[in-house]
């Protein structure tokens, strides 16, 4: 092989870079970590199914915001016929009051930083009342 020193150095640098996720996870020791958003709701039913909420809660919140802010429409009729007030602070956060253990659990895991709290005041979480 010609220029073996340079070529082998190049290959090693490439392999180190490309295997970054392998050794980074091994070093951080969090490879088996899985977020477990804590549900401390007094109600046992969300406005939609858990499966739907998991994937689409951001779309729903976006629609709710548009409906409230732009159309003044403040009632949501759930598939099961129940009505809810369209409100992040009063409806969503009423049940999921534990932002740091519910919202942030998955958002931190997926490096998502939603801009809810650009406008809304972040909930004051009490250290009692749940857990």
């Amino acid at each position: 092989m010609y220029d073996a020193g340079k070529v082998i150095t190049g290959i090693i640098v490439f392999l180190i870079l490309i295997t970054f996720p392998f050794w980074f996870n091994a070093a951080s020791g969090r490879a088996t970590y899985k977020p477990d958003p804590e549900i401390i709701t007094p109600d046992d039913q969300c406005v939609e199914t858990a499966e739907y909420m998991k994937r689409n809660h951001m779309d729903m919140l976006n629609q709710w915001r548009d409906q409230v802010v732009r159309e003044g429409q403040r009632t949501f009729v759930a598939p099961d016929g129940k009505t809810y007030e369209l409100s992040l602070s009063n409806t969503c956060m009423n049940c999921h009051s534990n932002k740091s253990e519910f919202c942030d659990a998955c958002h931190n895991y997926m490096a998502v930083s939603p801009f809810c709290w650009d406008c809304h005041i972040e909930p004051q979480e009490t250290t009692y009342g749940y857990k």
């Binding site: 996870n25 490879a31 088996t32 998991k54 994937r55 998955c106």
Partner: peptide, 21 residues
């Protein structure tokens, strides 16, 4: 679009592959 993936499941799969579990 409406075909949204369950990202937590996606990452779980990736992390399992990367840690050889």
């Amino acid at each position: 679009t409406g075909a949204k993936a369950d990202l937590i499941a996606v990452k779980e799969l990736a992390m399992g592959l990367l840690s050889f579990r």
